[in-house]
Design a protein around this nucleic acid. Sequence first.
DNA 1: GCCGTTTTCGGCCCGACTGTTTTCAGTCG
Length: 571
Amino acid sequence: MTKNAEVARVLKEIGLLLEIEGKDKFKPLAYYRGVRSIASLGEDVETIAKRDALTDIPGIGKGLSEVIKQYLETGEVELLTELRTRVPVKALELDSIPGVGPKTIKLVYDKLGVTDLESLERTANEGKLSGLPGLGEKTQIQIIEGIKVVRAGLERTLLADAMLAAEGIENALRKLKVIKKLEIAGSTRRRRETIGDLDILVVATDPEAVMAAFVKSDGVSSIQAQGPTKSSVRLGSGLQVDLRVLPDDSFGAGLQYFTGSVDHNVRIRSIAQKMGLRLNEYGLFKGEKKVAGEDEEGIYKTLGLQWVPPELREDKGEIEAAQRGELPALLSKDDIRGDLHSHTDQSDGKNTIEEMLDAAQALNYEYYCVSDHTQSLTIANGMDESRLLKRIEEIDELNASGRWKMRILKGAEVDILADGGLDIEDCVLSQLDVVTVSIHSRMKDTKGTMTERVCRALENSHVHILGHPTGRLIGKRSEFEIDLERVFETAQKHHVVMELNAYPQRLDLNAGNLRAAIKMGLKIAVNTDAHRISELENMQFGVFQARRGWLTSNDVINTYHLKELMKAIKK
DNA sequence: GCCGTTTTCGGCCCGACTGTTTTCAGTCG
């Protein structure tokens, strides 16, 4: 696991405490910028620090780089320790409550001695919050509700779940005749791994009617806000959904604005400013005159930029590329010709091989690889050599049967053992079309051990793909401690492809890692790792993540025709 | 604290909504 999240938390806490002290309005903003920058870094911040290149990171200057260095070297930051002494509150915890910010934290600390979630909940339940200057009955109820949300751990939702919820609301709203246009914006449109809340934008002839219908949608558990152009509700699942009504000729500007990210928009805005223009959610203006806003393309074009695909809008070089007209032609779902990692009921899958093949055929794939687990993974009923040899024969027969137009590829997801060896003999591996190797055990190995282990596995001349390279489960399990740079170098040397596992909880590699991998010339396989028919649909999430990693079809081997694919993985 | 086609100082996105107000501060995205 990288130190990135940890460092981001330290910077966030400093920013919050500075804001709570209230001495400087802009210093905290600089810290928050640093937080976003570090949190979305593709590389380990520690590696960057060792290169002495922290100030190359956007938003990190002399001050923040010193703070980061101090933390990495000593595990503490003097400034933070001082701040905590002056304002002894659990700022991160309190700030995570919806509706509570630095000003409220300061108020309840000064007046009531509240320092954490527990004491805030107690004072709120005792009714002591209402009556404080600026705080009334309703705010008190809102805070109690907000604490429940935090306790339930519902701050962020997986993209797949958010998209499902969005679809439900979208379908319901589209039935209203007064709605002329509707788009899902925000981080869902940017296809981030997890979503804070849903942003829905509409153009409607009768905004009031839309708002009235929206707040009564199925699954709404509470209404946070309801105005003529903006309403906000919380679903039973905890997900917050914002709906905004825009004028028709501002829809593009609104979409651009509410798609974000903040950092991308700040840059776009400053480009507009330098051209003597002003950009807000209603349009791009020269003085009082609107010069663009109906669609996004017009806004970007007027600013001298190519239209930027939402997945790239993170201020990670996309603006410079768009200025030069050099944005990559990103991978699309239609480019995918097959899936190279899937399971059946031979190991821990839920469907038979025939059922999986029928489902894959329905996706018009040109090839499809069956890759069940191997023997060390006993919990998943992994196959030993004799079962695997039988499976190989079976697939030969299935190919010969002519029942499926696509080519069925013989594969396995082979376990990497503690010492980096594989749990299937080379003489059997050599009979497979696609050998994927993965870590499923000893996930707490030290960085050195894990790196050695994986690299040794990649040195085996029968290995084609490294499956879910960091092993993370979003929100559940961190990445292994592993030196990815060394893994990439080894893979490059031994001609091994990196997997982008499309499972919504995995999305492994992440976008930053993907970008680093292709920069080194590595190829990627976008695979579903499906354990049942329905999971073959997860390919879309892999494609989203690939796009966030700037991947083109050339970078992804399962966009190739069968012949080229076999050539590409040949050792 | 960061940054630079407004470059070593002086700005820093900005509008909507709520609650508690009587004109606005706080939060959010």
